[in-house]
Design a protein around this nucleic acid. Structure first.
Lengths: 251, 251
DNA sequence: TAATGTGAAACCGTTCACAGCT
DNA sequence: AGCTGTGAACGGTTTCACATTA
């Protein structure tokens, strides 16, 4: 065979990590329903991507299927779980027991995916000492000390924006490795600390934008809509024609 | 000047929409602090991207800066707001007043970005008729009828997974154009309906993965870590060396 | 002079198409 | 016969570098 010039091979694309998590979620559901095998097309439909992507993603994590058949679901769950560290015991603390923090403490999805909420922290002395969703709330001032006992790896940051930077610094000082940040601000942290931001208002804006660019149907749209929205069709240069894309590419 | 052959020009890349939302958030903060102008480098630092990206993004929405100076913040806020439909009145309903739904009703960030929560829906008769965060809760069975009055464009879906598919169908029937989906499942809906998924467990898994792939420092990591994790360095092909990237490219 | 605005190159991720297995 | 596994083409996004301009 001809040697590939120097070409980098199948790494795991960073976006693929998000998809693996979705495959896992759906595979767990299938397994509970007693299904034992699925092919790339079925998986693709479940998370709304192309079958080729499914095969590439699974190849990238060295999951193997059987040609002519598909993938063994139990094996896939193991493999993806191994990649995402599902059997790893991540200890998680939550900081900021406001209404969002409370909801997150009550949310069972984290535990279901193997994360252990080992403690919560808040300023409010009326909350300290109480439990929500089985998690004890500690005074935020004691994070450093209590972290020595709880050994948290990750933190959920659900404090008000104004407090976010300072609390994040405390978390880093307490030795946390990663922060799931719900405060609408970009934390400035050492590169050794992982951050994933979840900005709810921003997600809503993405939705609004997507909707306003959608093929107009009978559905409700608000009165005014942004004027200048550049698209392939409204190109301000030569050749403004350019073959229109097929409207419905994926199966 | 030489005519560009036929080259497709600056569209707005889809990922740029998410960034615009973040620029807007930070610009609003700067404006409140009395800052009137900012250059691409400053903006880049604020949302943690490269200055070149900032200039490309802003060029793509026809925002103009002054060479040698930077961008006028008030003008930028207007321009980005116009693109994202900030002055458009999006009516939003929320379905599923559990702990997450409650938190979302109390969350002020949606209103701050111009979204109007016009109503909430739940099955529980004890909730119906009460208000949370100033939003009245209606019986879920009446969505169709009440939607005629409320004229909602978007919906926040915060019901349990089992109910998600059926409620989503009701929302579509009621004429909704987009759904912000917090249920951990991929909704199968007509292409005319926009969907943005927010899967909290999945975000946490992304964080865990990112952390486990981080340059190991003194910070806490859980005992076991996935074995086979392909990266550029662990490439199974020729030329496994390949010039290492400079470790800190952005300013 | 210090920044924008922008072609062109580099990079990354997806799609295509088909050879290879079972 | 059917589906996986994968090179190669493609397309979208980012980076680079620099001409341009207030």
């Amino acid at each position: 065979m001809p040697t590939p010039p120097d070409g980098p091979p199948n790494y795991l694309p960073t976006v693929a990590v998000g998809r693996l998590s979705l495959y896992l979620r759906e595979l767990q559901r299938l397994a509970e329903a007693g299904v034992t095998s699925a092919n790339s097309q079925a998986l693709a439909r479940l998370i709304d991507v192309s079958p080729a992507i499914v095969r590439k993603d699974l190849a990238a994590i060295a999951a193997v299927g059987r040609r002519g058949v598909g993938y063994d679901i139990a094996a896939l769950i193991d493999r993806i779980g191994a990649m995402l560290g599902t059997q790893t015991h991540w200890n998680v603390i939550l900081v900021g027991v406001g209404s969002l923090g409370t909801a997150l403490l009550r949310y069972r999805g984290f535990q279901r995916q193997g994360f252990r909420i080992v403690g919560a922290f808040d300023l409010d002395p009326r909350l300290v000492g109480t439990s929500i969703g089985g998690t004890l709330i500690h005074p935020i001032a004691d994070i450093g000390r209590i972290a020595k006992t709880l050994q948290p790896h990750l933190a959920v940051l659900a404090v008000p924006v104004e407090a976010a930077a300072s609390v994040a610094a405390d978390l880093v000082a307490a030795g946390i490795s990663g922060i799931l940040n719900f405060a609408p601000t970009s934390l400035k942290l050492p590169r050794s600390v992982g951050v994933v931001n979840v900005d709810l208002a921003s997600e809503m804006q993405r939705l609004a934008f997507a909707v306003s660019r959608l093929p107009t149907t009978t559905a409700l749209l608000p009165e005014s809509v942004p004027e200048f929205v550049p698209t392939p069709e409204s190109a301000p240069t030569t050749a403004a024609k350019a073959g229109r894309k097929k409207t419905a590419p994926p199966a």
